[in-house]
């Protein structure tokens, strides 16, 4: 099947085709899931692109190995992948921090897109948000990133984090409040007027 024709296929169908040896399905899945896994890892890891590449690679490798035994209808591929990426990131954060927050180890914020063309203010805002996210407890950060940056629904996040929907709502609400507090003092610096 040509690559373009697979754009409307579900992740689960593509994974079944991958397990059956369809090379076009392999390429389609990499193009679809690779950026998602990488982007989530970057945000969870404080903008460290190199480490995010390692994490996303490990998550994808696990997916390819799980593909032959994947039972359609059992789990959503995207949910499974977000969960693996999140857990790998949390493991790395814990190892890196050794249980304490070390601001010196927080990586420089990610380049927010079109590189040199991005405005300084855009970079400053993106960096400030990333720093504030890094200061949140892991689970709050995970919930906030999934909800407000990846755009997932609360039930989807509940599936990824193995929590109830109410617990997710509580985590994201507390995360938001904490972020607002962390960023409140940087309004002027980030170009937000007080009027």
């Amino acid at each position: 099947m040509p690559y373009d024709a697979m754009s409307t296929e579900s992740d689960e169908s593509l994974l079944a085709a991958y397990a059956a040896g369809d090379q076009a399905a392999a390429r389609a899945l990499v193009q679809r899931l690779g950026p998602r896994a990488f982007g989530h890892a970057v945000r969870m890891l404080g903008g460290d692109r190199a480490e995010a590449e390692d994490v996303a690679q490990e998550a994808l490798l696990r997916l390819w190995r799980a593909a032959p035994g994947w039972r359609e209808g059992e789990a959503k591929v995207s949910t499974w992948l977000y969960r693996v990426v999140s857990n790998l990131c949390i493991d790395r954060i814990r190892k890196r921090r050794g249980g304490t927050v070390d601001l010196d180890e927080i990586a420089e914020p990610a380049d927010p897109g079109p590189g040199a063309e991005a405005s300084l203010q855009g970079r400053a805002r993106s960096g400030a948000l990333q720093e504030a996210l890094d200061a949140l407890p892991e689970r709050q950060r995970q919930a906030v990133v999934l909800r407000h940056l990846e755009g997932l629904s609360n039930p989807e996040i509940a599936g990824i984090m193995d929590l109830g929907v109410r617990a997710v709502e509580s985590l994201t609400a507390r995360g938001r409040k904490a972020l607002e507090g962390l960023l409140a003092g940087r309004r002027a610096e980030l170009g937000y007027d007080d009027d």
């Binding site: 991958y18 950026p35 990488f38 982007g39 994808l60 593909a67 927010p112 897109g113 991005a118 940056l149």
Partner: peptide
């Protein structure tokens, strides 16, 4: 603003991921 500027992987990394996917494929 952050959603609009989602961090994207490099083409080189994606090419490596594609090669890995094909290598691991049954």
């Amino acid at each position: 603003a952050e959603r609009r500027t989602a961090p994207l992987p490099s083409g080189d990394w994606l090419a490596r991921m594609e090669a890995m996917a094909l290598e691991q494929q049954p």
